[in-house]
């Protein structure tokens, strides 16, 4: 995955709560067996409405999505992350995220940033007042900055390090192949196999 250290970009305010992954990428798009081309399916149903915020040319090229609470709930489909990234988003800011979506994001290098709801609303207000408003998301400092707003966010050290280095989880785990083998030798004998 791509390394993430700091990113500055314009924001799209998405004033909806419970943006489930079925909205981010409807199921019909999940039939693909490749990893590309999902940007066309991003918010496919909502984009049919001309007044939907992503259809506003003022937000073209924005790379930070600022959403209402409970973003990415529901289905585990990682396609939601791929769709957001392939459309051009590097960061999603919300006050709460679905656990699986948040996990999937950090595996792919899309940064989910949790900020208090009032800060999220200030960022949405700013992006609505002036779509050219820039937001900086600084993973090194664990900070979001825009104009005179400075807000800290929490992320565990390990995930932050992995994102900043752009590291492949599988490669990291395989360094511990001996520990896995040792564990396997001690597993309870009655545990089932599929064969």
């Amino acid at each position: 995955m791509d390394a993430f250290t700091t990113h500055t970009g314009r924001a799209v305010p998405l004033r909806r709560s419970n943006v489930d992954t079925d909205q981010i990428i409807p199921a019909v798009w999940l039939k693909q067996v490749s990893r590309t081309g999902f940007e066309k399916g991003l918010f496919a149903a909502w984009r049919e409405d001309p007044s939907f915020v992503l259809n506003d040319p003022a937000y073209e090229g924005a790379s930070i999505l600022v959403s209402g609470p409970d973003f990415g709930t529901g289905s585990s489909r990682e396609h939601a992350v791929w769709a957001l990234q392939q459309y051009g988003f590097r960061v999603v800011i919300a006050s709460r995220f679905g656990d699986i979506f948040r996990n999937n994001s950090t595996k792919m290098g899309l940064l989910p940033v949790v900020l208090p709801e009032d800060v999220v609303e200030r960022l949405q207000d700013a992006a609505e007042a002036d779509p050219k408003t820039e937001i900086t998301v600084d993973l090194m400092e664990r900070q979001v900055r825009s104009g005179d707003l400075v807000a800290s966010f929490e992320i565990d050290d390990y995930t932050r390090w992995r994102l900043m280095e752009g590291l492949d989880d599988i490669g990291l785990t395989l360094r511990h192949a001996d520990a896995i083998e040792e564990y396997e030798n001690g597993r309870q004998p009655w545990l089932p196999t599929t064969v």
């Binding site: 990682e78 989880d169 599988i170």
Partner: peptide, 30 residues
């Protein structure tokens, strides 16, 4: 790779849904 994996918790198992990156991780490393 399905969020309703939580179903299996009815037996006293820890069962949870994962995304495709983690599916690959489990395939490769268990």
């Amino acid at each position: 790779g399905d969020s309703h994996t939580s179903t299996h918790g009815a037996f006293g198992a820890i069962a949870f849904g994962i995304g495709t990156s983690e599916v690959e991780h489990v395939l490769a490393t268990q």
